[in-house]
């Protein structure tokens, strides 16, 4: 995070310098035309599958069974919203709200808890700090699978198996290592003079944290928030194990329809598309923070 900002002064320095990579030059010499064509084809490869999902979701069953979705280019009249109205009438909305009810609290909790821990790791000296932080770095890559059985047992014992709070807590715990890592690194980049001045003025640690450091970390928190949101919104495995039918998010609701993929396309295609609208809107509106989080957290 910090070096995102640290790198900025270079922007000006390098503006006048040669700005292309060597292969970029070869490419120029070979003729940009070929590159353009190749990249257009590649872009189509990346676009077509999602476009296909959208179009399939907008066609009736009979059309989907008799012809490819690409025929809509010549016969746009076949498009209809019927699949969507049927899906919403069938109770899919409740799984949408479950997704929201899982994702929003998780994101808020992860940010709050990780910010506190990150502050301690960055700005409070305590014995074993460096070692503990290395543990956090190590936990970044621990597979979720390791906790499925033990936590299922634990939840059974406490009676929260299958409930939304159980799912949220699991997500929070596994979101923390990345969040602490990201925020601690950002906090550490804040000039110490700022904190020492505040400490000199007699401000408490909590006050420094909440009124000085946390507000300064908005860009990092935005990155983290988007990442965490998407991560939880898109999760399938945790929901599969810990959410029962009443608490299931969209991903699990859709997954249960996968078994008869052929006959359930009229549910799966619109459902999958609905589930990715909010992530896509978030992604396009805040992609800068998304990329920042990605770059800063890529030790993961």
């Amino acid at each position: 995070m910090t070096t995102l900002t640290a790198a900025r002064p270079d922007t000006g320095d390098a503006a006048g310098a040669v700005r292309r990579s060597p292969l970029g030059r070869v490419v120029d010499k070979l003729g940009g035309g070929l590159v353009q064509v190749v990249l257009i084809v590649l872009a189509l490869f990346w676009l077509l599958p999602t476009l296909g999902l959208l179009v399939v979701s907008l066609r009736g069953d009979a059309d989907n069974n008799s012809s490819g979705w690409w025929t809509f280019f010549t016969k746009p009249a076949q498009l209809t919203l019927d699949n969507y109205t049927n899906l919403l009438a069938s109770g899919f909305t409740s799984s949408f709200w479950n997704t929201v009810a899982i994702t929003v609290p998780t994101t808020v909790l992860v940010i709050g808890i990780a910010a506190m821990a990150g502050y301690a790791f960055a700005w409070i000296e305590f014995p074993g700090r460096d070692g503990l932080f290395l543990v956090v770095v190590g936990l970044l890559v621990v597979p979720i699978q390791i906790a499925l059985i033990p936590i299922a047992k634990l939840y059974g014992f406490f009676g929260i198996f299958g409930s939304i709070p159980g799912v949220v807590l699991f997500h929070v715990a596994f979101g923390l290592p990345f969040a602490i890592f990201l925020l601690r690194n950002f906090f550490a980049g804040i000039p110490k003079e700022l904190l020492e001045a505040a400490r000199m003025d007699g401000a408490s640690e909590w006050k420094i944290f909440s009124t000085v450091v946390f507000p300064l970390a908005k860009p990092a928190i935005a990155s983290l928030g988007i990442f965490q949101f998407l991560w939880v919104w898109n999760d399938l495995l945790i929901a599969l194990v810990f959410a029962d039918t009443g608490a299931q998010p969209m991903t699990k609701a859709l997954q249960s329809q996968m078994r008869q993929f052929g006959t359930n396309v009229d549910i799966l295609a619109p459902g999958a598309f609905l589930s990715l609208i909010i992530p896509l809107v978030l992604f396009f509106s805040f992609q800068r923070y998304f990329v920042q989080g990605l770059l800063a957290g890529s030790v993961k």
Binding site: T3, A7, A15, A188
Partner: peptide, 22 residues
Amino acid sequence: TSGAPPAVATGQAAGKVAYGAS
């Protein structure tokens, strides 16, 4: 333009500031 790849460099500033800071 040039700039440190943050993925790699995140730790650098952090280390220099934080561990010498408090």
